Amino acid sequence: MKPRIPPSERGAALLAVLAMVMLLAGFASLGLSRLRAATDRITDSEARSEAQILANSGTAAALGMIHLLKAQSHRNPKLMQAPIRIPLGEGQVELRFSDAGNCFNLNSLARQQQLSAGTGTQAQSRAADFARLLAATGIPQLEASTIAQATASRLSQTGMLWADASEWVTVPGVTAQHWQMAGALLCALPNREVSAMNVNSLRPEQAPLLASMGLGADEARRALANRPEEGWTSANQFWDQASSSGTPDTAGAEMVGTSSRWIELKLLARTPRAAAGRELLLDTMRQPARVATSRWLAVEESVQEERP
């Protein structure tokens, strides 16, 4: 004969069973949520990988076309600035090129090692050139000279290349205001050479770069304002028009040209599931061009869709 269970105990047992069921249901729900989150993470990771693979394909296409694009835009730099969209499979890659050599390469201020006996060193900017640039941006002459000397000393002491122009603000005496005035004209290219500037793609606000080569500030602005519609055919033609005394005796003036070695590429790859952005510095000295530096971008940082 089964033992008789009092009604009160039967009620308590039922509540215990219900509590256990609710607890198990909670564990199951939590487990499903974690499984779903893990699955979503895997899906998102796969989608990002697809977009990055597409971006790599777009990079290869860009390296293959950059020399032809440079030749076509030799006297019309605007051709290079137009976005290029390439359909690849179910996705699309957008390429945007720009001149990355129209800047003062801070790394050129570093003391260079002797290349070999009797050959001297590669051309390098002098602190005086940098001081002229800073003065042309509105920084007082004495202050500009002090900052230029301090910058050259810092780079020579460390012997290391800067990776980004923003490292300039770590030099004693350089302030946020100095960066605001001159920062847009500076770069840190991956060598110690004077940047070979393309006078056909210089913008009016970049006139201080010409001042660093020995032109007066007014001469620099006037030269860019009077640039021929199709650009200068050679550096000699530019200097004949820009300077009454001929080519200035500066390292930068000797490197002026009508083509660009360093090209910046901003790339945006889109697939049906994701997008990936990439920013690259291309060295076009040799053919095919090579990637000098590269970094992945958050989509919001990367190339924007062309405005209508």
Rank of each mutant, 00 (worst) to 15 (best):
L161T: 05
A217R: 11
L189V: 05
L155W: 00
G252P: 05
A150L: 01
I139M: 10
A135L: 01
N56C: 08
R126N: 02
L142K: 14
F104S: 00
A128L: 14
A62N: 07
N226E: 11
A165T: 07
W232P: 04
S29V: 14
E306N: 09
I263F: 06
P3T: 11
L297D: 09
M181Q: 15
M255V: 02
A223G: 04
M80T: 08
I84S: 10
A235T: 02
D44R: 13
S45Y: 01
P204N: 04
Q113W: 02
G159D: 01
V199D: 03
L79V: 05
E219F: 06
L185T: 07
V93C: 06
L133P: 00
R295M: 12
E300M: 01
M255N: 04
R307V: 15
A292I: 01
C103D: 06
R203I: 13
Q180S: 14
A71S: 13
V199R: 05
A110T: 10
G26E: 08
S108W: 00
P190T: 03
L209S: 09
A148S: 12
A28D: 02
R75H: 15
R273W: 09
S260F: 04
M255E: 12
A47R: 04
S33K: 12
Q206L: 08
V171L: 03
S108I: 03
L202D: 00
A182V: 09
R85D: 14
T271A: 11
A62L: 13
R261D: 08
N76G: 09
T119W: 10
S302T: 05
L155G: 04
R126W: 13
P190H: 10
M20I: 04
R203H: 10
L18V: 00
N56R: 15
V169S: 13
H178E: 08
Q124Y: 04
K2Q: 15
R203D: 09
R286A: 13
P172H: 01
L95R: 05
E167L: 12
R96M: 03
L95D: 08
E90I: 03
T170I: 12
F130S: 07
T121L: 09
R307A: 15
S49N: 12
R227K: 11
F130E: 03
Q114D: 14
R227F: 12
A269P: 04
N236C: 08
D240E: 12
L281T: 07
R85T: 13
L280Y: 00
L109E: 05
L280N: 03
L155P: 09
R41W: 00
M160K: 12
A110S: 13
N236P: 00
S243I: 00
F97E: 04
V199I: 15
E219H: 03
R270F: 02
Q124M: 10
E230Q: 13
F238E: 00
P228T: 00
L224Y: 01
N56T: 11
R85I: 09
L109I: 07
E94Q: 15
L18Y: 09
W179F: 03
S108F: 06
A51G: 07
A13G: 07
